[in-house]
Design a protein around this nucleic acid. Structure first.
Lengths: 191, 191
DNA sequence: CCTTCGATGTGATGTATGTCACATAATTAC
DNA sequence: GTAATTATGTGACATACATCACATCGAAGG
């Protein structure tokens, strides 16, 4: 499926637009291709875009003062990603986004998102529901952090996204779970 | 300030409505009063409202199988709360909401929120931005969980909401931080 | 006023996870 | 194809936090 169809099917799960409306909507996206390891957003950047993943896998991550990495989100096809804190508050990026695999994305400028939301009411509806779902997912992950130990969180992650097991290196899974790679290795080798 | 003015000032930080539009908007809210300790949402309930806090302090919390409590959110005046997972997915409540102090709230039915969002475009805009901010706050809290130890999270919480220190018993602060009351006691007594 | 119960403090001890060190396997770069 | 780099496994030990037990203190209710 091409990127236009993928985006169309994705947003049509929430809203419907006329063909002209969708064409207009789609005309604001810029397709971009990246190679494995390439950086999309670096800490300190001005952030004015968000990204809809068409193929491949991205990660959004934070690096702390001890150079330890924590992964906020793996972004797979039909997921959206950016540094939303920076994007919404017009501040500099504090998180990074890069490519775990070769990837194709559609880039949407924040100013264009706002323009589209103002011009076409259903588009605002779509973005409201996208964030509603993201908020609930984030709360669930927070609860899982408080309630479950690392082993349970690992099993939950693999149950929810089995494709990650072969797609992303284990030290990145550990960085998502908030544990060290050593601990993760011991968990699934039962040591 | 009365509840109508509080809500008006709150939403006018994001959007503007005509007087008639705001009157219409406000007419969908039901004022409710609760006493300290009263329950607003219990696990297993059907959830069809969200709540705008006018006065007092609520907590939204999860109880796990070992009857340990984890607090997702303290809700102070101008905050919104509910079990958003249940509310958005039309499922039964898995989290509880109750009153830490006597409280007044404005209740908005989910069906009315959707109706208002469909009828008045700026209202959809308001709710989109409310959730955008909630999503970013939730991501920040997640990062803090992964990156900081309990002491740092405690200091962060008090820096962000100093009023909680005197308002909320310490075992609830602990339940928000995801630690036991004993550990919290040791943290601030440096033992 | 007295009783009860919830909130808090603190010691002793257990456990999950982190840290550091080192070995080896798998990829990537030249 | 070889060297360099990155990913992974594992042992020894350190540490943050949990658990359990018990004491104290203060607020709420009859």
């Amino acid at each position: 499926m091409n990127s236009r169809e993928l985006l169309k099917q994705h947003i049509f799960k929430t809203i419907t637009l006329t063909d002209e409306q969708f064409d207009y909507f789609f005309s604001h996206f810029t397709p971009l291709s990246f190679k494995k390891g390439q950086t999309i957003i670096s800490e300190g950047d001005e952030v004015d875009c968000e990204y809809f993943v068409v193929s491949g896998c991205l990660k959004a991550f934070f690096i702390n003062d001890d150079i330890k990495m924590y992964i906020l989100q793996f972004a797979m096809p039909t997921w959206w990603t950016s540094d939303y804190n920076a994007l919404y508050s017009h501040s500099r990026a504090t998180i990074n986004v890069d490519c775990i695999t070769d990837a194709e994305v559609l880039c949407l400028k924040s100013a264009d998102r706002e323009k589209l939301c103002a011009e076409i009411h259903p588009i605002e509806h779509f973005f409201r529901w996208r964030t509603n779902r993201g908020y609930v997912a984030s709360q669930k992950r927070l609860l899982s952090f408080m309630n479950n130990d690392a082993k349970k969180r690992y099993e939950e992650l693999l149950a929810l996204y089995p494709e990650l097991y072969n797609l992303v290196p284990k030290h990145l899974i550990a960085a998502y779970l908030g544990i060290t790679r050593e601990t993760l290795s011991r968990l699934y080798n039962n040591r």
